[in-house]
Design a protein around this nucleic acid. Structure first.
Lengths: 190, 190
DNA sequence: TTAATTTCTTGATTTATATCAAGAGCAATA
DNA sequence: TATTGCTCTTGATATAAATCAAGAAATTAA
């Protein structure tokens, strides 16, 4: 079983192995160079990708700065959900922080899965529901925690990220400036 | 067509009217008195409800205070998603801010819908995906806006709430203290 | 290896927001 | 109607975090 298939299985639950192979085969390898864009906001988002290696930064621009919404790493699925599912202009820009290897599936091929596997839409529903609860937790974090607490919580759960991507982006996705991030970090190191 | 059926149709898309009637009939009316609980965190959440009238406050307690995650009004579906779908202990407490009329469906009956209507899981997926994007927007708000901006944005989109529920809860769900809320409010009124 | 960028840190200062404390306005209750 | 709680407001003050500015450290490019 390929790594991609293993991840699909772990996210979407039990699927027959022959079906899993078919799903896996619909994903095509693709590389994005450091700094390259997986997606630009406003454009159509016609594919969903799985990160084999590397990091993608999901962000949007405001009047005065770029705000990082999330950083995706190996094992994550990445897309602009509303763009991919509802065929609306993408809400997010997505850029590679280092050379990044993906397995990518087009909307067209993705929709074949639902036709092929009867229970697919239900598994999808469950997957998105879990994503939903992750966002609920993030919101709760912003309602109930200080910048320092958010830093500590995120650090405990994502240590590996801290020496692999520019810290300013982590600062942004945690809702603080790079300066505040740096000061909080100094505290927790000593 | 009942109001409940209209809302189901608007959220879940086109469903045959005979099917819609069956779904509607699985929801049972239920009233929660002001201050009463729809759900307490840690308990099982065995039903999903639709608000016919009234307001429910979704919140959780931290060490030092209660944090309001959301306030649901007429036309909303309410549940603890992870409790209802994954049968885990509820993450949220949900309390009626005034006497509130619901149409409520048990998990058992809810699961019948999926058996009855082939495309139901797909419609559910799309519904939850839309909920997901709403949370994405909320997070982005916390990453990119000041308390005042969050107030103004929310006020523009939910004016009716401001004279119907205690403002302290709106303050909490926007991530600010009642005092800050009051000061921001004063500014925007004058 | 040096030069040029980019990223991170640090200090000084400002600003936004929280906290504390008191009182005012309302609504529920007796 | 008086009383008792809530809820909201307001002022004074404290604290967290942002901003501004400069330089150090680390990467990347030459």
């Amino acid at each position: 079983m390929t790594e991609l298939e293993q991840y699909i299985k772990s996210y979407f639950g039990v699927i027959r192995s022959d079906e899993l192979e078919i799903i896996g085969s619909l994903f095509k390898p693709k590389t994005i160079k450091k700094g390259g864009f997986f997606l630009k906001s406003g454009r159509p988002c016609d594919n969903l990708s799985f990160i084999q290696s590397g990091f993608l930064r999901i962000f949007a621009a405001t009047a005065d700065k770029e705000v990082t919404q999330w950083i995706s790493a190996k094992g994550y699925f990445v897309t602009d959900l509303s763009g991919f599912i509802f065929e609306k202009p993408a809400r997010w820009s997505i850029q590679a922080l280092i050379d990044t290897d993906l397995y990518s599936i087009s909307r067209e091929d993705y929709n074949k899965i639902g036709k092929l596997i009867p229970q697919w839409h239900e598994l999808e529903k469950l997957f998105i529901a879990r994503c939903f609860t992750v966002l609920e937790d993030r919101i709760f974090g912003h309602l109930s925690m200080t910048a320092e607490e958010r830093y500590n919580f995120f650090f405990e759960h994502n240590r590996e990220l801290f020496n692999q991507v520019p810290l300013q982006y982590i600062a942004s996705m945690l809702g603080m400036t790079p300066e505040t991030f740096s000061r909080v970090r100094k505290k927790t190191i000593s």
